[in-house]
Simulated scan of single mutants.
Amino acid sequence: MMRFLLSSLATLILAVPPYAGTARAADDCANAQDQATMNACAGKAFDAADKKLNDAYRQIEGRLKDNAAAKRLLVDAQRAWVAFRDAECNFQGGPPADAGSMYPMVVASCQASLTNNRLKDLQGYLNCKDADTDCPVPAAR
C-alpha cells in the first residue's frame, strides 16, 4: 500500500509542468517577485500563446480539408517547427543544472515568444486573398 501511494505521488509530481506554481501566486504576474511565480507566469504565457496557435492551425486545417497533399505539408511543417522551437528554447535555457530555478522561466518565455511569432505566420496565411499566389492556404469562403 505504501509503495502504491509513493508511486502515485511521484507520478503526480512528474505530471505537473516545471513552471507550475500555486494558482494564487500566478494570478499576479505583473508583480511577480519570486522565482516560482515568475516560472508559473511564463508557463501561463506560453500556454495562452499555444492555445491561440492551435486555434489558428485548426482553422488552416479546415481550409485544407479538400487538399490532402497541402494538409500533409502543413502537418510536416508544423512538426518540424515544434521540434525547432523546443530545441531552440532548450538551447537558450542552457543545461538545466547550470540555469537552476530560472530554467523553466527562460524556456517557457522562449517558447511563448517563438509561438507568438509562428502565430503571426499562421494568421497571415488565414488572411490571404485568392490572388496571393505565394499563399499556401485558400481564402475563407
Rank of each mutant, 00 (worst) to 15 (best):
R3I: 11
S8E: 13
L9A: 12
L12A: 12
L12R: 10
L12G: 09
I13A: 15
I13G: 04
L14E: 05
L14R: 08
V16M: 08
P17R: 00
P17T: 02
Y19I: 02
A20Y: 05
T22I: 05
D27G: 15
D27K: 12
C29K: 00
C29Y: 03
C29H: 02
A30P: 04
A30K: 10
N31D: 09
D34L: 03
T37D: 00
K44T: 10
K44Y: 13
A45M: 07
F46P: 00
F46V: 06
D47Q: 11
D47Y: 09
A49L: 08
A49F: 06
K51T: 13
K51R: 13
L53T: 00
L53F: 06
L53D: 00
Q59F: 10
I60M: 05
I60A: 02
I60K: 02
A68F: 06
A69R: 15
A69W: 07
K71P: 01
R72P: 13
R72D: 14
L73H: 10
L73Q: 14
V75F: 10
Q78E: 06
A80D: 09
V82Q: 07
A83F: 01
A87W: 08
G94I: 01
P96D: 11
A97I: 14
A97Y: 11
D98V: 10
G100A: 04
Y103H: 14
Y103L: 09
Y103W: 13
P104N: 05
M105V: 04
V107Q: 01
V107E: 00
C110S: 07
S113F: 13
T115Q: 04
N117F: 12
R118G: 06
K120A: 13
L122W: 00
Q123M: 07
Q123N: 13
Q123S: 06
L126C: 03
C128H: 05
K129A: 14
D130A: 15
A131Q: 13
D132Y: 07
D132V: 10
C135Q: 01
P138L: 03
